[in-house]
Design a protein around this nucleic acid. Structure first.
Lengths: 131, 131, 131, 131
DNA sequence: GTGGTCTAGACCACG
DNA sequence: GTGGTCTAGACCACT
């Protein structure tokens, strides 16, 4: 299975993080699974028209996070999932994300049910998470 | 009604954004409402032990978002809500926030029901939004 | 296309607003268009002999008004125009500006035809507005 | 003839300037003419719910500008019109106001004809200016 | 190199 | 007292 990475330049999310997140997302949805290969650094950098250091940084993070492993001269391969952070760290990140989301959305005037529905519909696409 | 702002120094969330979020939250929960005054820039800066420019920046953002109005020499006051942004812009900001949240939370391993519940519990405190 | 920003020090118009107005004017006349880059914060600050925070403040306002977008580590870029504000907000801002202008000009003794002509001649340079 | 002064607290125009402008405007439209009397400082301050120093400052400016004269113990009286500024100063103020107005309105998306019409309709109310 | 955040401290205008 | 503007200079994250 291959992966289609797209980036948004004007976002406040750094490019390298967008790449990381999309690979993670692909793994989460099953679009990528163990043993699948990622595009080469230069190929992806070329296609996204970004500096190849940026792609390299993203790939390094994927390796550090245990999501991919690099094999010299062959490329990067998706690894089997494993736990990355401590429970505390997970909870801290989760709460921070939730706080930020609610804070961002608070003054936009949407109904609570719309807000919840928007999250639910996005989560519906995800296969890696339990209900 | 008054507001009690607290910040965490050394967080990866900028100080000025912590202030903004807390004021927004206070407005959203009804703890602050139209006509209420915010602590003076220098008084709050003093109490939080941050530079007054940092507080000023936070307050500026509140003014730009139509949440507060500033009166030179008098202070900052919470304003009545008004339709500042267009429908498209509201939707754009909403989608951006939702996408970001789901992306941030994806790999943390929480159950979908937990994620939704976390949002719902935060929204439960909010009084300015319809169900 | 590039932009040539000039400021008048010691004016009663704040430096950051002079910068904002000139960029807006350049966009309005078509001298700057989507995708064009603004001078880097520090480069412009250097050339204008002002503090880089002052330029940063000006650029921030441009971003908040949807005129430019910032990309960390890359620079600031002119964005495509979009409907940022609601109709009510546009009208409110328009009326405020018009009231202010007429109030400012009232006691200066110019003829009505001169006042209208001055506005028309300035608008003649603008390419982004319909007649 | 009496004058009805109203102020807007949340405006970026200082209160004392609002008072000055409204008196000027009243003179300009003929609502006030030579010999008419202004409300006492304390009476006006009371009615507007502002500090009496603010009203005093406004009245001082009116006297300095030659629009009113104070008679001890009797009050302030409107004087005959006379020129206040040099030609250069008048032109400078005029251009600054016009530049600011056009700058403020540029990105709001109104048609040029609407902009001109808005100014013309506001000027139509003014009686002090020649066509 | 780029932009983003923050501090320390100054001066001004307004009430 | 209040908020607004600006400087000088620091450190950080991103490309």
């Amino acid at each position: 299975m291959n992966i289609q990475v797209n980036i948004v330049l004007g976002s406040d999310v750094p490019i390298y993080r967008q790449i990381v997140e999309q690979v993670k997302h692909a793994v989460a949805t099953g679009a990528l699974s163990e043993g699948d290969t990622l595009p080469s650094i230069r190929a992806l950098a070329n296609r996204l028209v970004v500096n190849h250091n940026t792609v390299a940084k993203a790939y390094n993070l994927l390796v550090q996070d245990g999501i991919a492993r690099s094999e010299k001269g062959r490329g990067l391969f998706i690894t089997a999932p494993r736990n990355l952070y401590s429970q505390e760290e997970l909870r801290r990140r989760f709460d921070e994300a939730a706080d930020r989301f609610v804070g961002d959305v608070l003054m936009l005037g949407f109904k609570k049910s719309e807000i919840v529905a928007a999250i639910q519909s996005r989560l519906a696409e995800v296969t890696i998470l339990k209900d």
